[in-house]
Design a binder for these strands. Structure first.
Lengths: 340, 340
DNA sequence: AACAACAATGTAAGCGGTTTCAATAAACCT
DNA sequence: AGGTTTATTGAAACCGCTTACATTGTTGTT
C-alpha cells in the first residue's frame, strides 16, 4: 500500500469530492452506483484505508471496547477474554485489553485510561472489580457516566452498569447437596475470594449445609490466601487444617485450582479419591479434565455468558433498552473425584 | 468530570492560549512555572483529559501496540500476553489484543486492522504466524513496512521484523540427551506443530537421537493433529502407536498438554511413571506442577523473553538500533516424570 | 540607555476525516 | 417545453489537538 494516502488523494484520482468518497466509505445511500463503483475501484487499487484517528475525531467513536481483567494468565479469565474478543470482532468492534492486577488503584487507573482512549464501552471480566465497600465501587459508577459498563460474573446495581452472571449460589447449593446426598457429612468449603461471586458461592454452600443441619462451626469454611497457582501451598493449607483435628471427607472448592490443591493433599496424605475424600471444583476448566483423577467440577457455561454479554452490549450501543442483569444457571459435571 | 471539555475551555479558564495548554499537557519545557501551575490547576479542577483522537491525529500515534495471538485461552500464550501487556503499560503504552485463530486469512485481516488503527508496533505472540511458504509470510513484511513487528518464539528475517526466541533446538537436544543418558533408548517425540519453533524442537530431538545412533526410523516421531485440549485424544493416539508395535519407553512432548496426554496414556495402560515410561514436557506451564506425577518440563523463561521483547520494541520506537534476533536458552526442570 | 539574545506566549495552519447545507443535475409532471 | 421535485454532488465548517512561526517580554551586555 502506498502509505499515507488520504481521502483527498482518493477524491482526486476518482475525480470526485472528498465528501463523496466519505459517503462511499460509510455506505451512505446517496451516491449513484456509477460514482460509487468509480470510487471503490480507486480505493481498491491503492488499498486505501481511512485514518482511524481522523475518523474517530469526526465520529467520536473508534468502535473499540475496553476489556479489563485482573490477570489474563488465569485460565478462566483467559478463556473469557478469548470468547469476548472473538465475539466483539464478529460485531465489528476491537478490544483494548488491560490486565489490572488486583489492586483498586490500578483498576481505577486502567479504567480511566480506557475512558480517555474513547472506548465505546467497558467490560469488566471477573468478580474482582466489585468491592465490599460501596465507596470502592465509585470508580465504576464514574466510568458508567461515560459509557456502558458490562460486568461478567459480578453484579452491581448502578445506572448504565449491566451484569451477566452465572448462578453461583445455586450451583454451589446443588453441588453441596449432591455431596451430602452421597453420604458425606463433613464437607469442607475451600475458597480464596470474598468477591461478589465468591460470596454467592459461599452462601450457596452454607444454605445446603444448614438445610441438612450440618453447619456446626465455621471451621469447615477455609479461606486460602496464597497464590492462585501454588498447588503445593494449597495442599499444605489443608494439611494444617487436618492437623488441627478438623475432620472432612469432602471438599468443595471455589475454583478448580483449589480443587487441585485438595487432590494434591489427598495424594500426599494417602487418601483415596473419591472413597476417602470427595472433591468438587468450580469452572470446569482445562485443569479439571487434565488431572488425575479427573475432577468433578461445576461448569458455568462461560461461552454462553460471553455471548449474552456481547449481545447486550451491542444492543446498548445501538440504543436499545437492555436487561440490567441476566443470570444463567450452572451444571455439575461428574468425573472421578466424586462418588456417583 | 464535566464531559466534553476541550483544550479551548481550559485555555479560556486559565487565561492562556491553547498552545500553552498543549505545552503543559505535553511537558514541554518552554513554559514558565507560574503559568504551568495555573494551567495544571484548571486541568485538575475540571478533571480534563485530552481527546485521544485529536491527539492521535496530531501526533500520528496513539501509544498503542497491537498484540496478536492465535488463541488467548492457550495457557502459554495467555501468560505471554499477561507479561507483555503488563510491561507495555509500564512503558506508557496500551495494547490492542487480537486473537486470530490459526488461519492465514484471519491473521492477515487482523494485522491489517491493527495497522489501520494506527498502532505504533505489532507483537506476534507464538510461532504460528510464520509459515512454511515464503509467500504466506508476505503479510508480515507488508505490515513491517509501516511499523516494527516483533516476533515472540518465532524468527523471520525481513526488514523491520525483530525476533525474540528461546533456543528450542538446544533445549530439546538437551532434554533428549538427558533421557538417553538415563538409559532410555526408545524415545518417542510427540508433537503437534510444524511451526517455526516446532521445527526447531524436532531438529533438536533428531540431533540428539542421531548422535546417539538411535534414530532408526521415523516412527518414533509422532505428529498429533487433534485439539490442543483433548487429553483423551492424545492418549488414544499413543495407544494406537503402541498397538502398531512401536516401542517406546520415553516420551518427549513439544508442549505440556501433549505430555499430559502421555501421562494419561501411561495411566490407562497401567505403565508406571517414570520407571516404565519417562516423560518430558515443554513450557513448564501451570499444568506441569499440577498433574500427577508432576511433570518434568522445559522452562523457556517466558517472562525474560517478554521483558526483552518490550525493551527492544521501546528502543525501536525511540529510534535506536536494536538487535534483529535475540536467543535465550531454556532449562529442564526436573520433576516426577523422569528418572533422576 | 540601546540593542542583542533568549525565554515565554500567542496565532494560525495543519492532521484526515464527517456532515450540513447549498448547488447542480436528473427525472417527473402537465 | 417549462416548472417542480428529487437524487447527486461539492464547498466549507468542524472535530480537538500539535506545532512552526511570529510576536512580545525579559534579561544581559557594553
Amino acid at each position: 500500500m502506498t502509505p499515507n494516502m488520504t481521502i483527498y488523494d482518493i477524491s482526486e484520482k476518482a475525480g470526485v469530492s472528498i465528501a463523496t468518497v466519505s459517503r462511499v466509505l460509510n455506505g451512505s445511500s446517496n451516491v449513484s452506483d456509477k460514482t460509487k463503483k468509480k470510487v471503490l475501484d480507486v480505493i481498491n487499487q491503492y488499498e486505501y484505508t481511512p485514518n482511524a484517528f481522523a475518523r474517530g475525531l469526526g465520529l467520536n467513536t473508534m468502535k473499540t471496547i475496553g476489556v479489563m481483567c485482573a490477570d489474563s494468565s488465569d485460565l478462566y479469565l483467559a478463556k473469557a477474554i478469548y470468547f469476548i474478543e472473538q465475539k466483539l470482532r464478529a460485531n465489528g468492534y476491537d478490544s483494548i485489553l488491560c490486565c489490572t492486577g488486583y489492586e483498586l488503584e490500578t483498576k481505577e487507573k486502567s479504567l480511566n485510561l480506557l475512558i480517555s482512549k474513547k472506548v465505546d464501552g467497558i467490560i469488566l471480566v471477573g468478580s474482582h472489580f466489585i468491592h465490599e465497600s460501596e465507596n470502592d465501587n465509585r470508580y465504576i459508577m464514574d466510568a458508567a457516566l461515560q459509557v456502558p459498563v458490562m460486568l461478567l460474573n459480578a453484579s452491581f446495581d448502578a445506572p448504565n452498569v449491566y451484569s451477566i452472571v452465572s448462578d453461583d449460589y445455586n450451583s454451589m447449593y446443588e453441588a453441596t447437596k449432591l455431596m451430602i446426598a452421597s453420604g458425606i457429612r463433613d464437607v469442607l468449603y475451600f475458597y480464596n475470594s470474598t468477591s461478589y461471586s465468591g460470596k454467592r458461592k459461599l452462601a450457596g454452600y452454607r444454605a445446603a449445609m444448614e438445610e441438612a443441619g450440618l453447619l456446626r462451626s465455621g471451621n469447615l469454611m477455609q479461606l486460602y490466601t496464597g497464590s492462585h497457582e501454588d498447588i503445593q501451598a494449597m495442599s499444605e493449607h489443608l494439611m494444617k487444617v487436618q492437623s488441627k483435628g478438623i475432620l472432612f471427607r469432602g471438599v468443595i472448592a471455589s475454583d478448580d485450582n483449589l480443587a487441585l490443591g485438595a487432590i494434591k493433599y489427598a495424594r500426599t496424605t494417602g487418601l483415596r479419591i473419591p472413597e476417602e475424600l470427595s472433591i468438587i471444583g468450580y469452572n470446569n476448566s482445562l485443569l479439571a479434565a487434565c488431572c488425575n483423577p479427573e475432577l468433578t467440577s461445576i461448569d458455568n457455561k462461560l461461552e454462553t455468558l460471553c455471548q449474552h454479554l456481547i449481545t447486550t452490549l451491542m444492543g446498548l450501543l445501538n440504543g436499545c433498552e437492555m436487561p440490567k442483569k441476566t443470570v444463567f444457571s450452572g451444571e455439575v459435571i461428574h468425573r472421578g473425584t466424586t462418588l456417583s
